[in-house]
């Protein structure tokens, strides 16, 4: 009897400690999560009560909304270019900055700092440096006799501008790869040297496989992040020109807060959720094939 009550006390103490999270989870995550399924089947403008419309929102999205498809395409394009190039640039910089050289930490700091600049500040600065007439980028290009494009005002270049800007922040993932490089046991390289492996073979068969868990992590977070891309597009282009930077999250925001189409936006949120589930599912499934867990 006494033992049982000690157990009860332990359970109660445990729940008392995790209570802040548990309450927050129920009120701000689980509750809204379920409510948004319901809202996705309604017409809801936040002011009046939701009106049940069945699957109408989903039907409209999939069959009658070209901007929805455009926003999916824009987001996929961005993800397909920005994520792989971010991984390649991050790994390459980390390999380069892993040298033992006097002053190397100064270079590391310079590459890292852009990644801590707030997104809104980065966006404002890039609007300025990508200004077609007075911007830094085009005036440097002109120095070399090149007439730069209109960047954010050109529908063929606007998305590319945002991709370049994402690469400017690559220093954050570079730091993660650098930490990973430090964890690779030196014996692996010594053994490989004895076996006569050259620098390329060592990178190909030791360094890259040992980094795959971190690459995997960045791939998953990058995919979720790409679908959440909002602030840059909102601040810099508002989705234009001609919807060429209409990211999924931006369109969702416009639907919800500009047009107060909260039911429709909830349906979009659920489609987004399913897409992310499918993608992380695919990445997770592939992970046995290429992710190497050495330790």
């Amino acid at each position: 009897m006494k033992k049982r009550s000690a157990k009860t006390i332990r359970n109660l103490t445990g729940y008392a400690f995790i209570a802040p999270w548990l309450i927050g989870f129920l009120v701000f995550t689980a509750g809204p999560f379920i409510a948004s399924i319901f809202l996705s089947f309604t017409r809801y403008d936040i002011i009046s009560t939701p009106v049940w419309v069945g699957a109408a929102n989903y039907k409209e999205l999939l069959t009658g909304d070209p901007i929805f498809w455009k926003s999916l395409l824009v987001t996929f394009k961005y993800a397909a270019v920005a994520i792989p190039s971010g991984i390649i640039a991050g790994v390459a910089l980390a390999l380069l900055l892993n040298m033992e050289l006097k002053g190397i930490s100064v270079y590391r700091t310079i590459f890292f700092i852009p990644s801590i600049v707030p997104v809104v500040a980065t966006s404002v600065v890039f609007v300025w440096i990508l200004n077609p007439n007075s911007g830094l980028v085009n005036s440097i290009l002109l120095r070399f006799g090149i007439m730069g494009p209109n960047w954010l005002q050109d529908k063929n270049w606007a998305l590319w501008s945002l991709i370049f800007m994402s690469l400017w922040g690559v220093g954050g993932s570079m730091i993660i790869y650098l930490a990973g490089l430090k964890d690779i046991p030196i014996q692996l390289y010594e053994a490989a040297m004895i076996d006569g492996a050259n620098a390329w073979q060592r990178a190909r068969h030791i360094t890259i496989p040992m980094l795959t868990p971190i690459i995997f992590f960045n791939l998953v977070m990058g995919t979720i992040g790409a679908f959440g891309t909002f602030t840059q597009a909102f601040v810099m282009t508002q989705g234009g020109p001609e919807d060429s930077t209409m990211f999924y999250s931006l369109y969702l925001f416009n639907r919800a807060w500009r047009y107060l189409d909260m039911g429709y936006a909830s349906a979009m949120a659920w489609i987004l959720f399913v897409i992310i589930m499918i993608f992380t599912g695919i990445i997770m499934k592939s992970h046995r094939k290429w992710v190497h867990y050495g330790n």
Binding site: I18, W21, L22, F25, V27, F28, T29, G31, P32, F33, A35, S36, L39, I46, V220, I224, F227, G228, S249, L252, A256, M262, A265, S266, M268, A269, W270, L272, F273, I276, T280
Partner: peptide
């Protein structure tokens, strides 16, 4: 519960933000 908490880290904010907004309002 701990795994449930970890899973919420991958949940896109879009799925909860509209009802949360309605709640705060």
């Amino acid at each position: 519960l701990f795994y449930l908490m970890l899973a919420t880290m991958c949940l896109p904010g879009a799925v909860t933000m509209i009802p949360a907004f309605a709640l705060f309002r």
